[in-house]
Simulated scan of single mutants.
Amino acid sequence: MTRSPRFFGFLYFFIATVFVYFAIQQNNRTEGWDFFTILLMSVAAIDYMIGFRYFSLASKQKKK
């Protein structure tokens, strides 16, 4: 059973949003930008990038 690229796009966007939420909580707890906060934001940025790529792939498949 294969899933559509749009499903994975939404999945990665959800995961990235969770990482952003955790990064905000970490920033409020430590009152500054520490290594762990930057790491969480980096992972969220990568997840958003992957989500955009899946949405791009879905639109390319739709055009075919």
Rank of each mutant, 00 (worst) to 15 (best):
A45Q: 03
I46T: 14
F7D: 14
K60F: 05
V20I: 15
D47N: 08
K63Q: 13
S4V: 08
S4F: 08
F22G: 00
F14Q: 11
G32M: 08
L39F: 15
Q25C: 07
G9R: 01
F19D: 02
L11R: 11
A16M: 02
A45I: 09
F36N: 03
V18Q: 05
F10W: 09
R53M: 14
M49S: 12
F8N: 05
I15G: 00
T30L: 13
S42Y: 06
Y21I: 15
K64G: 08
T17M: 07
K63W: 06
F36Q: 04
T17K: 01
I38V: 15
I50V: 14
F14G: 13
F7K: 07
Y54W: 05
Q61H: 06
V20F: 03
F52D: 04
I50A: 02
K64S: 10
Q61P: 00
I24F: 11
G9C: 07
K63T: 13
F13W: 09
S56L: 11
V18W: 04
T30V: 15
F8A: 07
D34T: 11
A44G: 06
N27Y: 10
R3I: 08
S59I: 12
F22R: 04
K63P: 01
F7V: 14
F35M: 10
Y12D: 01
V20D: 01
P5V: 07
Y54F: 14
R29I: 11
K62D: 13
A45C: 06
M1T: 13
T37N: 06
L11N: 05
G9Y: 03
L11S: 13
W33G: 03
M49R: 03
Y54I: 01
F35G: 01
M1N: 10
M1Y: 10
L40S: 00
F35P: 00
F10T: 07
L57T: 03
G51T: 00
F55V: 03
R29H: 09
M41L: 15
F14P: 02
V20W: 02
T30I: 15
L40E: 04
K63R: 12
Y21C: 11
I38G: 08
F8G: 00
V43Q: 00
T2A: 13
Y12R: 04
Y21Q: 06
L57F: 02
L40C: 06
Y54K: 04
N28Y: 04
F14C: 12
R6T: 10
W33E: 09
F22A: 06
M41P: 02
A23N: 01
F52C: 10
